[in-house]
Design a protein around this nucleic acid. Structure first.
Lengths: 112, 112
DNA sequence: TATATAGGCAACCGTTTGATTGCGCAAATA
DNA sequence: TATTTGCGCAATCAAACGGTTGCCTATATA
């Protein structure tokens, strides 16, 4: 289908929604069925299913059918993409420690 | 204003847009004016300004006025929030190494 | 076999998004 | 001083989003 090729959801867009983030936090602890997930929220089962569909489309979750139940599993691989994107910024908040290192070095120099 | 209290943007929603992510990548390297940023994109200057406004509202960027020019700076502090949220999932992709550790341990036991 | 349960799919609807256009204002330049 | 430049603000619009409702199929249970 064209949709599966073109519409391919973005991970960043998927985690933009607070409900989807909460679902991911739940699934990271253990795999769950849509109904079990929906019990944790005020929204309807269908609303949650739509969120799950979006999470599936960008491969943040995978599914395993068991009879009429479908267990959704969190897929850490995809979340890594966010982590990798963050890498470019991590240097900046680690620079604080670098600055501290610099200060300590200078103090050592003074002591010598 | 009420807007500044209630509307307070979400960092996750801010980085959902690919253009905004690209802007952040640019600003992480050096502070820039809206016009300078817009030159890197096909969109109009106003479109970019709107993105900048969203990034400002969630404090992912800060501004420093210089005459009629406004330099926008990347603020790493806010990006940390995303990094902190990711922490809960990081365990999962690091578990691969744990599994490797487990295998190595068992092999050592065999050797003993 | 009849009924209840799990869960996907499609249609619909109000709100939000991202982009464009036009405008106004302050700072720089002629 | 007149003009250009930098940039924010407001209005407008199509597309996307998030939710609800209704329906259908398949599996489990009475």
């Amino acid at each position: 289908m064209i949709a599966s090729l073109i519409m391919r959801r973005d991970v960043f867009q998927a985690i933009a929604d607070p409900t989807r983030r909460a679902i991911l936090s739940l699934l990271a602890l253990n795999a769950m069925t849509p109904n079990a997930i929906a019990e944790h929220f005020d929204s309807s089962r269908q609303a949650i299913s739509k969120h799950i569909k979006i999470l599936s489309e960008c491969q943040l979750v995978s599914q395993k059918q068991n009879g009429r139940e479908i267990y959704y599993h969190f897929n850490p691989e995809k979340m890594k993409e966010v982590d990798m994107w963050m890498e470019q910024f991590r240097v900046q908040w680690e620079s604080r420690f670098d600055q501290l290192d610099e200060i300590l070095k200078q103090q050592n120099n003074k002591q010598l």
